[in-house]
Amino acid sequence: MNKTINYLLFVIFLIFAILQLNDPDGWIWFIIYFIVAIICLFQNFITISRALLVIVIIGLFAYATFHISLFIDYLKTKHKEEIFGAMVYEKPYLEGTREFIGLLMAAAAMIHILKSKKF
């Protein structure tokens, strides 16, 4: 079952990575999501060290802290559905919230990998 979940996570994060290539800062997000995807895939074939997983998780949460204020700004808005719309330069909290949620999703995937490992 874990292998199936890992394959599914690999596909999801690979798609996330590819979708980032049209953004101005897409290379950063491509690298983040691609690393997560590769870890999910490799987990089915090799033993990934606990230390590496912890470092990636800490890195994802650390980077997410830079987006917390934008996420809070989003929570204060009346039109929550804007998160699904186009990027509006007058509303940077939309992109910041999307990035924050993406980082949390990536961290959750890494936590799943960490918890499913037998050390």
Rank of each mutant, 00 (worst) to 15 (best):
V88K: 14
M105C: 13
I48L: 13
F16K: 15
W29Y: 01
I39R: 01
F13V: 07
F119Q: 15
K78I: 06
F30H: 00
F34E: 00
K78P: 12
L8H: 05
H79P: 11
I18T: 08
P24Y: 14
C40M: 07
F42N: 11
T97L: 02
F71A: 07
F45E: 11
Y93W: 14
F34V: 01
I48T: 13
I46A: 00
K91V: 02
G59C: 08
F10Y: 10
I5E: 04
V11A: 15
N2V: 05
N2A: 06
Y7V: 00
I12F: 08
Y74K: 06
I83P: 06
I55P: 09
D23H: 12
L14Q: 09
E90A: 14
I28Q: 09
S69I: 04
T97E: 05
S116P: 05
S69P: 00
L75G: 14
R50V: 14
T47N: 13
I38G: 10
D25M: 01
A64T: 01
Y63F: 14
L8V: 13
I48D: 12
L8P: 11
R98M: 07
F100Q: 04
D23S: 10
R50C: 12
Q43N: 15
I18Y: 13
L94W: 02
P24V: 12
A64P: 02
I83W: 04
I31E: 03
K117P: 02
I83R: 07
A64I: 05
I48N: 11
I35V: 12
I38K: 02
F71S: 04
F66E: 11
F16D: 12
L114R: 12
Y89L: 13
A109H: 02
V54W: 13
N2E: 12
L19P: 00
K117D: 13
F71Q: 03
K80V: 00
A107Q: 01
I58P: 01
L21V: 05
G96I: 05
E82C: 14
A86E: 14
P24Q: 15
G59D: 01
L8N: 11
N44M: 11
H112K: 11
G59N: 04
I58Q: 02
F119L: 08
E82W: 10
M1S: 12
G102T: 09
A109N: 02
D73F: 04
K3T: 01
T65P: 05
Y33S: 09
N22C: 06
R98E: 09
L94R: 02
F30R: 03
